[in-house]
Design a protein around this nucleic acid. Structure first.
Lengths: 226, 226
DNA sequence: CGGTACCTTGAGCGGCTTCAACTCAAGTGG
DNA sequence: CCACTTGAGTTGAAGCCGCTCAAGGTACCG
């Protein structure tokens, strides 16, 4: 079990730019194969106060990461889509819960394995840093959105975010319901629905069923987002 | 996160738990002395779209980090108080602005120096990761607050945060004005003022001038926080 | 089909914002 | 030492955006 990861000072390894590739790189460097796992729709991946034992990468499906207040209010902090790495935030105990919003398959590695590797392997350490940096950026944008944007601006931002992350041919196949969108944007599901109807009426988007949206005017959405 | 790291086989370096001490550790390891700098009240430290050349640590005073929307709406993402390290988020271009809300002195190191060190020195790499992790945690809490908490809950959370970070003898000497508190909490300055008056009336806190607040009932604030 | 979860739409309400007036404290110059 | 100015804070009144509550419609899946 003696896998040597030590690198000499000064050796720099070229890295994929995208932390999404962490699993491949780490697996290769550690000589391990990430475990595959499946979560059915509504299955919990982890929950608040539970142990943070694993790190995950979505292969297919979708995950929501959220926190509940004692009275049932819910804030979704992130949606994880195919390619996204999630479940690592440097803490031993989960601060949020996560569950599958569609049948989802993931790859996982043990967090301890990752962190052990990071104590002796600069490549892995840098990957964790890049991962944290990406999350910081996303959370910062979310703070601006939640603190200072109107309902219409929030929904516009959401549509553009999903447009860039979900690559359907024509229409976006949204994996989440209106309530989830609301809980992500700090709104109610009714407000989300109303804004979407408004945008539809304005010709900014088309529906093919509530979950399949086609953007017709990204420019206007961008100007709405602020 | 492990606080002892193998540098070479056998050698283990014990690290301060707190990223606040990064400057001392990094300086020692790099054999450099962080530069001292002063910013008068209202002076800009950096601004959006500017280059991210330096990392800072507050010695005394206070800094606000914020983002402006095109129409003047402002969201403050963080206040930095003595001991806090700020200005590192892994990006080349600033995504936010920062200025001094009081006369402030800081220590700085060049970001490139830090990042160079991090490519060959695991101790430094881990410090950057710890720093990012702390920020992630703070931002996550802020997202819950901005997305789902009421005005009273936000102000209660703010008071408790400042209570734990500003260690005055009795009363907290707040460095920021009501507008800044509002821009941090996603509220208007009037709403902040009203909630504070309400809490004062309820005996939860006392004033010694608007900027000096003494908490009389932390238990109630904790229960209000949600 | 029929059931059920999801979505849309309407009407009324309420919490926070907006606008405005007033108070207070600190700094300046006569 | 006081009149004046200026920035900050408090408080009130009115308005609005998003929420709540409710009813009806739609799509998916057995």
């Amino acid at each position: 079990m003696a896998i040597s990861l030590a690198r000499q000072a000064g050796e720099v390894i070229s890295l994929p730019k995208n932390p999404s590739d962490m699993f491949s790189v780490v697996a290769h460097r550690l000589g391990i194969t990430p475990a595959a796992a499946r979560f059915e729709k509504h299955a919990e991946v982890y929950w608040e106060d539970g142990p943070a034992d694993h790190v995950y990468q979505v292969v297919s499906g979708a995950i929501r990461n959220y926190k509940l207040l004692s009275d049932g209010r819910c804030q979704i902090t992130a949606f994880y889509l195919p390619g996204d790495v999630f479940g690592y935030d440097g803490e031993d105990q989960r601060q949020t819960s996560a569950d599958a919003i569609a049948d989802t398959s993931v790859r996982t590695v043990k967090r301890r394995l990752l962190e052990n590797a990071a104590t002796s392997d600069l490549t892995v350490a840098h990957y964790l840093l890049d991962l944290a940096t990406e999350n910081l950026k996303h959370q910062r944008d979310q703070i601006i959105l939640l603190g200072r944007k109107t309902a219409a601006e929030r929904v516009a931002a959401f549509l553009l975010e999903m447009d860039s992350r979900l690559k359907g041919d024509e229409s976006m196949p949204l994996p989440m319901c209106r309530r989830d969108i609301g809980d992500y944007l700090g709104l109610t599901l009714e407000t989300v629905s109303r804004v979407l109807s408004l945008l539809h009426g304005a010709g900014v988007l088309d529906f093919a069923g509530a979950r399949h949206i086609t953007l017709r005017n990204r420019t206007q959405l961008l100007s709405m987002e602020h």
